[in-house]
Amino acid sequence: MVNSEASEVKIKAREVTVHYGEARALHGIDLDLNANEVTALIGPSGCGKSTFLRCINRMNDVIEGCRVGGAVSIDDQNIYSDEIDVVELRARVGMVFQKPNPFPKSIYDNVAYGPRIHGMAPSRAQLDAVVEASLKRAGLWEEVKDRLDAPGTGLSGGQQQRLCIARAIAVNPAIVLMDEPCSALDPIATAVIEELIEELRRDYTIVIVTHSMQQAARISQRTAYFHLGNLVEHGPTQAIFTKPENQQTEAYISGKIG
């Protein structure tokens, strides 16, 4: 399942620590994430998966009392250095959340929002083109092309999630972070998103947090197992799910610890 060609490292985390006030949530994570691969982050609730994900687009910066140590680089550029424009970074690193959260605006405006604020589509025609292309890539265009003015919140849960994916990719990111994107969806809507993720990895590097071992096994090329703020094991997904090296990983994926 892993690409045979040598994969290029897109995201490099080195000794990443995160504190919320006095409490340390991550204890020094070293992890390389490859370009054009889906990496699944798995582990028990509270082990730090979301915290780690938020280090990649500096979303932790907006959390009161949260401190990030160590280094995270994208394409060998430290995203925590002073030269980094955080707004621009968050366009390069899109994020999709557990609960679909379209803005209370039209379908069109949801997708157009990012390109507008980043000044990426000066003319209306250009904006139309970006909206259409993004909705197509998110596999939603055929379902909504006749009602682009309808509110995004009126779509089904699965459609809303694809709208959020369209919104994230409209600003042409390099990386898409997804935090349990299917946990509020039914199996069919989940399958549609999974198929989409497989499509998207041709163009993007994807990091996804999931509680479904089967989902991680189905969609990711690599899997990282976190436990109590540590990275326990990281490797090709098929190895993690058939022959993990670490006993804790084995216990977790086999349903032996909570």
Binding site: M213, F241, P244, E250
Partner: peptide, 9 residues
């Protein structure tokens, strides 16, 4: 059960 690893083997 969707068994994994040792269970599946």
């Amino acid at each position: 059960r969707a068994p994994m690893a040792t269970d599946l083997r």
